[in-house]
Design a binder for these strands. Structure first.
Lengths: 219, 219
DNA sequence: CGGACGTTTCGGCGCCGGCCGAAGTGTCCG
DNA sequence: CGGACACTTCGGCCGGCGCCGAAACGTCCG
């Protein structure tokens, strides 16, 4: 079956810990330079360069060159979905983790971005808030009044799928992804309701954010 | 990031063409013996044995031994979902295929099973029929009258997620997976409405099936 | 019991692929 | 123009892994 060979090729791209680390870093949705990624994964720039070329050729990443820099980012939401599906599968089964490991990943569990939308406890809270408001169904489809609500927040439907369930690997609960999830995440950052912790994917709700959520009727 | 290393390990399991071929075969939802898989993938039994052990250890497959046979099957729907997501990603981009290749996979495109539910053109037809009947929404969530309709066909909700969208790699269109999709597939086989072609995943609608679909109001 | 057969273990072979450092290319900026 | 810097290419090293065949193990059945 020729199709499974193609699958094997994609899997091979992700089967290397260095390349996987690159993809994990890029899951924050931003563009990284080659050296940033090399430092992040602790390999020589030459090594990183070769890995990036392979990932780009395989369609997982796209580059856009700017002067002497080579910026790379995920090739699109479908790559993020692929990665998220795989991490959900590979992710920590109900293994109780040690205390320090737990506290280290605590911030990530509380809130994080998954490519372009909110995940972690923040993502779950958002989901249940939206559910209470009747914006989404329990299967995370957008309701008609929900679409009105979204448009009031500046949401414009595009070609991209409006809503999608994304299985969170920390909480094991689906949360809102897709265009709507991405838009809400954007809005929250623009309004200063959420903030990144350093340069990681970890995200916290600011005091203004808590107020804002209440004003919207979210939790 | 330790999580991405786990991802790399899972990816490594699928990064081998022989192991990928095993998984592809097992996507029909049935249990295969070690030698059957070895023959299918054209490797020595000893090689197959080692691959199977790795796949089982990695949680992708489960075995159940019976006398001198070792039956293996996918470890569950979540594995099928993983594989389907990956094939959807790796799958044929809009490349026009040659004529003989096309006719070879024609039967597969017309109808096939994807682990435990219908896919291919048959899956798409089912989806649009269910949509017309108001059983599912366009996002493939089950409606309330739809649930009544399903129960009349013997469907019993369980712990498993009722409905899930599965992206078809031949048609690039989401179709109905999850418990409801699996149940409908079962019903169709039981009633003799659908039949496998040989031992493959390819499936055809029988004449009785065409009548049955009309009786249900499906297309 | 003894042969047939499905499966597993082991040793050995060969190749692929990840890694690095050194040298080369291209870009920026003083 | 010349140095600093981001990145790439190349050669070489090394480990891991997929493959097989031979032999052992376990089960079935006459």
């Amino acid at each position: 079956m020729v199709l499974m060979e193609a699958l094997a090729q994609v899997a091979a791209l992700l089967a290397d810990r260095t390349r996987a680390a690159f993809c994990g870093a890029l899951l924050d949705g931003r563009a990284w330079t080659a050296t940033e990624l090399a430092t992040h994964a602790r390999v020589a720039p030459s090594t990183a360069s070769e890995h990036l070329s392979r990932l780009i050729e395989g369609g997982l990443l796209v580059e856009h060159r700017q002067g002497r820099h080579r910026y790379v980012s995920l090739a699109g939401p479908h790559v993020a979905e692929l990665l998220e599906t795989m991490t959900a599968f590979a992710g920590p089964d109900p293994k109780p983790r040690g205390l320090r490991a737990a506290s280290a990943s605590e911030a990530m569990a509380r809130g994080r971005t998954c490519y372009d939308h909110l995940a972690g406890k923040l993502g779950i809270a958002l989901k249940s808030g939206l559910l209470d408001l009747g914006v989404v169904t329990s299967e995370l489809a957008i309701t008609e009044p929900g679409m009105v609500w979204l448009k009031e927040l500046g949401f414009e439907p595009s070609k991209r799928q409006v809503s999608r369930a994304c299985l969170d690997w920390t909480e094991r609960v689906p949360h809102l992804a897709g265009a709507a999830g991405a838009h809400l995440c954007d809005v929250f950052f623009e309004r200063g309701w959420t903030k990144r912790i350093g340069t990681t994917r970890a995200v916290v709700l600011t005091p203004a954010g808590e107020q804002g959520w209440r004003d919207l009727g979210l939790s």
